[in-house]
């Protein structure tokens, strides 16, 4: 073994990007809102919410699954569905390359992940959008995965949570993207016919075609505090009315005040509040899982 000193005995980094913890130990988190600095571990333990000002950090499907499923136990659904470039779309970059680059940098296939697992001991299907994948834009994969998650709910009589976090439609899929609004709404009529509850959880930000379809169609529309929620983006509205926007315009609180949300729930309480709602609706018909 004379040459073993340069042979790699231990494998290198084996953690895939997907499993990589975004907040390794010993790091600090600086709240962008109140600028307070706290240990990252404390921030994670507090559901990625600032303990001093309640600022809800934008998080992705990895974190939401971790926060909502018991012991991070879940089975991811429809992992085989991958995006394509049906229109051969080229803007400043070609869409195919953009997809590849984003898949590489995020470790995600597309802007949504769907999974089934236990939430406080009861089975539930959760679909969660990832903003870091092309602004959480809704393309064909987002539509198809939501459609299949709803099918799964209907087949297995499970309630459905859909966590929206999106800038809206994915322009590079043009009308295909637009029709995902119709497709997901169509599937939601079937979920409604099956009398299975659907909670739409709106998080920062939820705008455009996502708001104008499934995000507003929950039996319960619930938002995290301080999220931007709207149809048109604030910049567009400002350009249209040629005036400054009122303070708090298009926030969760604004939407609650105008009657479009059932409740605003702090992320720290989200899991318990969601499972409480489901248990009241399903009245014991919810399947026990562990």
């Amino acid at each position: 073994m004379a040459d073993s000193w340069f042979q790699r005995i231990k494998e290198g980094i084996t953690t895939s990007t997907r499993e990589k913890k975004e907040t390794p130990e010993g790091l600090w988190y600086k709240c962008p809102s109140c600028k307070k600095i706290i240990p990252s571990e404390e921030h994670v333990a507090n559901a990625f919410v600032c303990p001093s000002c309640d600022y809800h950090e934008r998080i992705g499907s990895i974190e939401y699954f971790y926060l909502l499923f018991d012991d991070n136990k879940f089975l991811e659904l429809s992992t085989e569905i991958m995006p394509t470039d049906p229109l051969h779309f080229v803007d400043t970059k070609n869409y195919k390359e953009r997809l590849k680059a984003t898949q590489g940098s995020t470790g995600l296939n597309d802007a949504i992940r769907t999974a089934v697992g236990p939430m406080n001991g009861k089975g539930v299907v959760i679909a969660c959008m990832d903003f870091k994948f092309i602004g959480g834009s809704m393309g064909s994969v987002v539509g198809e995965k939501i459609a299949r998650a709803i099918d799964y709910c209907i087949e297995n009589k499970l309630p459905f949570v859909l966590i929206s976090k999106s800038g809206g439609a994915r322009m590079m899929e043009a009308a295909f993207s637009l029709m995902q609004m119709a497709k997901t709404s169509a599937k939601l009529t079937l979920l409604a016919d099956a009398k299975l509850p659907f909670i739409s959880l709106l998080t920062d930000p939820t705008t455009g075609g996502v708001t104008a379809s499934y995000a507003m169609l929950g039996d319960f529309n619930i938002a995290e505090p301080g999220a931007l929620i709207g149809f048109a983006g604030p910049r567009v509205v400002k350009e249209t009315i040629k005036k400054d926007l009122p303070k708090g315009f298009q926030t969760s609180e604004f939407l609650l005040e105008h009657g479009f949300l059932d409740a605003i729930v702090n992320r720290k309480e989200m899991k318990n509040k969601l499972s409480h709602l489901f248990s009241m609706l399903m009245q014991g018909k919810q399947e026990e899982v562990s």
Binding site: A212, V237, T240
Partner: peptide, 24 residues
């Protein structure tokens, strides 16, 4: 759809979403 202030206050997104659902 009109991207104005009042439209947002009165739920432009909800109105469109509701129509998609009901028209189905």
């Amino acid at each position: 759809a009109y991207p104005g202030l009042e439209g947002e206050e009165r739920g432009q997104a909800e109105a469109i979403a509701r129509n998609l659902f009901e028209m189905m």
